[in-house]
Simulated assay, not measured.
Amino acid sequence: MRASRYQPPPPAALFDTAKEISAAGLPLNVICQSYPDHRLKRLLETGTRRRCLFQPYLPQARGVDSPTLVIADNTAADGLFPVFDQVFTDMWERSTPL
């Protein structure tokens, strides 16, 4: 598919059935600006785990801020998820709760 014709999925398609949301950098914009508060509240009330890291700047130069990616949890296979999970977990462990 050509990048110029790519249409990202709507936020509801990404989050409505999520069991866990881990977001840092640009993906937080999608949550904060494009996903209704009442839907986020419903996710939290039904047990969706969420971890949000605000404004990290290129940790270990891996480009967590860009591009925005949706990665399925497939820890059994090689790919981007284990890399994202490790970088996110490292940042999470060094973070300060708000």
Rank of each mutant, 00 (worst) to 15 (best):
residue 93 E to A: 11
residue 89 T to G: 00
residue 16 D to A: 13
residue 64 V to H: 07
residue 98 L to M: 05
residue 73 D to E: 15
residue 4 S to P: 08
residue 46 T to A: 02
residue 51 R to H: 02
residue 2 R to V: 08
residue 34 S to L: 02
residue 63 G to F: 09
residue 20 E to S: 10
residue 63 G to S: 09
residue 34 S to H: 04
residue 11 P to E: 09
residue 55 Q to C: 12
residue 89 T to S: 03
residue 98 L to T: 04
residue 76 A to G: 10
residue 90 D to E: 07
residue 32 C to H: 11
residue 96 T to G: 04
residue 47 G to S: 02
residue 20 E to A: 09
residue 4 S to L: 14
residue 91 M to E: 12
residue 17 T to K: 12
residue 81 F to H: 14
residue 48 T to G: 02
residue 59 P to N: 13
residue 25 G to P: 01
residue 4 S to N: 14
residue 86 Q to P: 04
residue 55 Q to S: 14
residue 60 Q to R: 12
residue 12 A to I: 15
residue 53 L to W: 03
residue 27 P to M: 01
residue 10 P to C: 12
residue 85 D to Q: 14
residue 78 D to E: 15
residue 33 Q to C: 09
residue 19 K to M: 15
residue 83 V to M: 05
residue 24 A to F: 00
residue 29 N to M: 06
residue 47 G to V: 03
residue 1 M to P: 04
residue 10 P to Y: 15
residue 50 R to D: 11
residue 50 R to I: 13
residue 30 V to M: 05
residue 20 E to H: 04
residue 66 S to R: 11
residue 60 Q to N: 14
residue 61 A to K: 14
residue 27 P to K: 01
residue 19 K to I: 14
residue 38 H to R: 06
residue 6 Y to F: 11
residue 45 E to A: 00
residue 42 R to Q: 08
residue 2 R to A: 06
residue 4 S to G: 11
residue 87 V to H: 06
residue 60 Q to G: 13
residue 44 L to E: 07
residue 61 A to R: 15
residue 62 R to L: 11
residue 12 A to R: 13
residue 92 W to V: 07
residue 43 L to P: 04
residue 32 C to T: 05
residue 77 A to V: 06
residue 32 C to S: 08
residue 46 T to C: 02
residue 79 G to E: 02
residue 88 F to E: 02
residue 91 M to D: 11
